[in-house]
Design a protein around this nucleic acid. Sequence first.
DNA 1: CCGTACCGGCGAACCGGTTCGACGTTTCAC
DNA 2: GTGAAACGTCGAACCGGTTCGCCGGTACGG
Lengths: 340, 340
Amino acid sequence: MATIGDVAQAAGVSRSTASYALSGKRAISAEVRRRVEDAVRELGYTPNAGARALATSQTMVIGLLAQFLDDEFAPAMLQYMLGVSNTARELGYDILLVTEADGTRALRRITDSRMVDGVVLLNVAERDERLPILRAAGQPGALVGLPADCTGVDVFDLDFEEAGRLMVDHLHRLGHREVALVSQPEHVTERGGAYVWRLQNAAVEAARARGITLHTISGSSHQPDVGQDLNALLDAHPGVTGLLINNEAAAAALPTVLHERGLTAPSDLSVVGRYSDEFARTFSLPYSSIESAPDRLGRMAVRQLVRRIEGDVAADEPHVVRFVTPELVDRGSTGAPRTA
Amino acid sequence: MATIGDVAQAAGVSRSTASYALSGKRAISAEVRRRVEDAVRELGYTPNAGARALATSQTMVIGLLAQFLDDEFAPAMLQYMLGVSNTARELGYDILLVTEADGTRALRRITDSRMVDGVVLLNVAERDERLPILRAAGQPGALVGLPADCTGVDVFDLDFEEAGRLMVDHLHRLGHREVALVSQPEHVTERGGAYVWRLQNAAVEAARARGITLHTISGSSHQPDVGQDLNALLDAHPGVTGLLINNEAAAAALPTVLHERGLTAPSDLSVVGRYSDEFARTFSLPYSSIESAPDRLGRMAVRQLVRRIEGDVAADEPHVVRFVTPELVDRGSTGAPRTA
DNA sequence: CCGTACCGGCGAACCGGTTCGACGTTTCAC
DNA sequence: GTGAAACGTCGAACCGGTTCGCCGGTACGG
């Protein structure tokens, strides 16, 4: 492999001059610049990433910590990862992917060894063990998901409270008076997936304010079971005319369940989900839903992270906690309740 | 951050001695080793990855090129990625994730700049543009997917020919005489997804050998459409008693289609799919299927790649092309044909 | 008793970049 | 005509590791 020394020699200049000619950080005569650029082309020179990282203490790599927890719906994670990865590349960064089960050890490893310039944490829990380590590392970090303590990091998440209200209000306006909310499995909540009860609490509150009945259950995240959960719910509350689904597995199972019970949306039952548009298209879920916008959140996180890395933002500028306003995508699965 | 110089100073030895004490590449007295290790602990020393890479020309990073093509079923890719990532970590390597649309440019970038010690290519096409670049790079590479030209790389793939035969034989043995195969969309095949027709050709051949009728169609990879494709198929060939599904989207859509037509498997129709067990569990697909073993393939690819990187295998040792023997997971969706 | 081998440690060079300070030439204002 | 500023280039130092060669001291065999 050609080094910058080879380039300099071929162009008949010193190494430093070659470096300046390529970086443009000092004035270089047009003639010399041309000779250097020719040499680069001819030798197929590409700077050695390790050497550059050592000299500049910048790696142009962002760490992506994706936590795949049991009982969580994996395909949804892919959307976030792609949003992060593609945006990073657009901004000139590569992605070091970490899927290690022990996220704390992994985070320590990549920050301590200076493999990355900053870190994106996905699937952040209420009290995420990775956060203290990230703060100690002194590297910028951006989160997708809302922890209890946001100091020192930039945080991005869907506004799940607003999502809960929106779901309830939507059905309330259509005339529904008894609805049910299916959440993620309890493991997820206990492990710190705060978004589950953020949405649920807001929905409960909105239902009370509107004076309508809201049943809440947590459905399994695996498939034979979640179908049974849904059936049990519908059996237990025959008066329910609307379903709110904050559980991807439940959403995916719902078409089959409704078929089996001979129900169709929206004539028999109104349904509102909460998942990404991509997810809806892949599985042809015909339900109106709150767009969870994973690619957008990943994109926002990386954008802000890169601003911090590159110092475009003053070090003392307060960190942001930004909530994406949920939008309801109408797929025609809601209407007036059946006039039982 | 502490450097090895700091460690050496704290331990009262030279930098080289500290290095040898940690690497064990030369004999060091127990006393000195203890002092060095204490200093490491005390200072929280972690070697700088860039510096080490520069000195050893080893980065301990593997490039993972995941190609997300339109009209291909994205969630399946995640399984491969996780197999690769987790195995790499077990072997001491980190993963540089590349999802760039232009895989050739990305591959050139990460190899030329020596960011990685080797590369895993996913979703390899019949004539993959990334291959010539990989060969020119002179870095070891492992592929998941079978290209036309395998020279210079290690290749791992499911034995799709055997899978096609297995599907046909299985239904033939049960007494079926007219079956249909649903493949991926034609875009996928045209773009070089050779596995589609590798399976199909073998299935056609096996059907001829057994003297049974096999209809073949290519279904859409998106959902509203693939359901229609399936309905059209069943309408056109009412004599079909068995369905072979080599198309994840079709498999996911099938339960709904069968419900709508009032059919159940296996009493009305026998069904054999081709997808991963993980996929089956996530979507509760109740069909017997050929296990596509994405995690296993990813694991095999990384294992072999690391062997090459670490020189455990002689440079001239022939490269391997290894086919995983498909296994049929019985989920009870096949039986004797209905005695129409 | 001497030569040799080995042990344990040190100093220096090297990996391949970037960047600072210096220095000789021009250019230009006064 | 002279001093200062700007321009273009170079040499050297540095980033933080690893590794090679060397050397003094000790053990050991002949």
